[in-house]
């Protein structure tokens, strides 16, 4: 389909830029690790409670790291009138939105894939076989985060104090994702199975579907403002 082709093409452009300059990915990665490090000083995390607190700490770290990525998300388009050029071409605006969502998603997932095991080692946790399931939950949550984030990163493009305004606007909206992801991960760690966590997972999936769709539809008005 045309939409898929455009999305992939735009995504590939961003990935290519990122692979050549590697600004966002490295910064996000180190920021995520740094946060985990600081959490260790900020919170007394006794061995027995580490598994309990792990989802919350991890997810907090990912949210802040993801916000870093969001601030840079449209950086390429801001330079050299790239955005105007893109808008002049007959590209579906929704494709641009989806490409940005998936781009930030890939950035965050890359960080998560490394930080997850790192966290596990740093805090001497067990339950290594649960890691894939936990990662699935994190994936759903990250997707929701990127959907809202990509939309509002564009919305705040023209605002003053943008770096402060973006988190201020999206964090309240992200609360279902934050709650659902952390609770689901907690339940997974506690029981090792998905059953009890299924309402949270359904909420996450619902959130993802609703806001990817809404963002897709609304994006063209935002970007052309």
């Amino acid at each position: 389909m045309e939409l898929l082709r455009q999305t992939t093409w735009l995504l590939w452009k961003d990935l290519l830029l990122e692979m050549r300059r590697r600004e966002s990915l490295l910064a996000m990665f180190f920021f995520g690790v740094l946060l985990l490090f600081i959490f260790n000083f900020a919170f007394e995390i006794p061995r027995e409670r580490a598994a309990e607190m792990a989802p919350g700490l991890l997810w907090l770290a990912f949210i802040f790291t993801g916000t870093l990525g969001l601030a840079q998300l449209y950086q390429a388009e801001k330079e050299n009138h790239c955005l105007e050029a893109l808008l002049l071409s007959p590209i579906d605006r929704g494709a641009l939105f989806l490409a940005k969502v998936f781009f930030n998603l890939l950035l965050m997932l890359s960080v998560e894939v490394v930080v997850f095991p790192l966290f596990w080692m740093l805090f001497n946790l067990e339950a290594w076989k649960l890691l894939p399931s936990l990662f699935l939950v994190a994936f759903l949550g990250t997707l929701g985060f990127c959907a809202i984030g990509a939309l509002f990163s564009a919305v705040t493009l023209k605002a003053r104090a943008r770096e402060l305004l973006l988190p201020l606007v999206i964090f309240p909206l992200m609360i279902p994702v934050i709650l659902a992801t952390i609770r689901a991960m907690e339940i997974l760690l506690r029981t090792g199975a998905f059953e009890e966590a299924s309402p949270w997972l359904r909420l996450l999936i619902g959130f993802d579907v609703i806001f990817i769709t809404a963002g897709f539809l609304i994006f063209e008005w935002v970007i052309e403002a």
Binding site: F152, V155, V169, A214
Partner: peptide, 17 residues
């Protein structure tokens, strides 16, 4: 326009929140 986007998305989010 930007306000309107937040107004709509915020409202859609309320049931989920």
């Amino acid at each position: 326009v930007c306000g309107a986007v937040l107004g709509i998305i915020g409202f859609l989010d309320i049931p989920l929140i």
